[in-house]
Write a protein that binds this DNA or RNA. Structure first.
Length: 289
DNA sequence: AACTCGAGCAACCGCACAACG
DNA sequence: CCGTTGTGCGGTTGCTCGAGT
């Protein structure tokens, strides 16, 4: 379903590739021989439906430091919202959705980058056992964490680990799907078949903590963002105006005792709610209220 | 050194719903 | 009430990189 530009680049093209794809798109250079280009173009034409961000000339893929700066500056000056018109006003060649995603997941000053702590890990597992794949709700209970981050963490770490545990013996019933208020919609409730079980915190006993990867391409923000929380090197030398944000992030080490206590408190609060109501739906409703 | 493979994760997609006129 | 627009969300994709062979 992706546009051919996205298909080509996988959404992570470097600047050169992006430019190249743009040219192909703009000038309809279907005579271009490389097989993957023709395949991609055919793919796009056959799909019929234009993607939401199909405007020719809009960038896709990784954000550059320059784009990040533009976005941050604009939001700091005008605030969030009006994502559709924001790119144009901010001077970005991105679709509004892309801007929103970038801001929500990476540029917001309150984002906490870095490893998921064992306590967060444990809380995610417990909340997921209650809420299912409702990542935004789970993220809302983990200060500084985004739904995307938690979703990725779950898919790449926790689900496998829990699956391993459950196949080892105690495969308890899945509670995830039942909690979803959107259970009637078209979205696949994949957790229903995932065998996700309500494991206790023991699953988190042996946790492999991953350091954020440093991206090779210095032009991309990732390197700066990721190292910001690790080595405290900020946004990179060409991005001094962003240092303030990074300082805020650095000032709250994810492993602090205070943070651990807060996470425990959050979960305790949920348990109380659960006991009070006795019904899972009531609990979920209380979160939604 | 070259190659393969899998993990990790940023970013995109489409759908659902809310807000608005 | 209805159509349009904007926003939020969960699922999915595919690139990058490191480990293994």
């Amino acid at each position: 379903m992706r546009s051919y530009a996205s298909t080509l680049t996988g959404g992570r093209a470097d600047k050169g590739m992006r430019k190249f794809v743009q040219l192909i798109s703009t000038y309809n250079l279907t005579f271009w021989k490389p097989k993957f280009v023709l395949h991609a173009i055919n793919f796009n034409l056959e799909m019929g439906r234009a993607p939401c961000c199909s405007k020719v000339g809009l960038y896709r893929g990784p954000w550059t430091t320059k784009e990040d700066t533009l976005l941050i500056n604009y939001i700091q000056a005008h605030g969030e919202g009006h994502w559709r018109s924001l790119p144009k006003k901010a001077g970005l060649l991105r679709c509004g959705k892309s801007c929103r995603l970038r801001w929500m997941n990476y540029l917001r000053p309150d984002i906490k980058r870095g490893n998921i702590t064992p306590d967060e890990d444990d809380l995610i597992i417990r909340l997921h056992s209650l809420l299912g794949n409702r990542w935004s709700l789970i993220a809302g209970r983990l200060p500084g964490r985004t739904d995307n981050e938690i979703k990725n963490y779950w898919n790449s770490h926790l689900s496998k680990r829990l699956m391993k545990n459950s196949t080892a013996g105690n495969k308890s019933q899945c509670m995830g799907g039942s909690a979803g208020k959107r259970s009637g919609n078209k979205r696949k409730q994949k957790e229903d078949s995932d065998g996700i079980s309500s494991q206790n915190g023991e699953a988190a006993a042996k946790i492999k903590i991953y350091l954020p990867k440093a991206m090779k391409d210095g032009d991309h923000t990732m390197s700066g963002l990721k190292t910001a929380n690790n080595g405290g090197q900020g946004w990179g030398s060409n991005n001094e105006e962003l240092d303030g944000l990074v300082c805020d992030l650095d000032s709250s080490p994810p492993n602090s005792l205070q943070n651990d206590i807060m996470l425990d408190d959050i979960f305790e609060e949920y348990q109380h709610l659960l006991k009070a109501d006795g019904i899972m739906d009531s609990f979920v409703d209380s979160l939604l209220a």
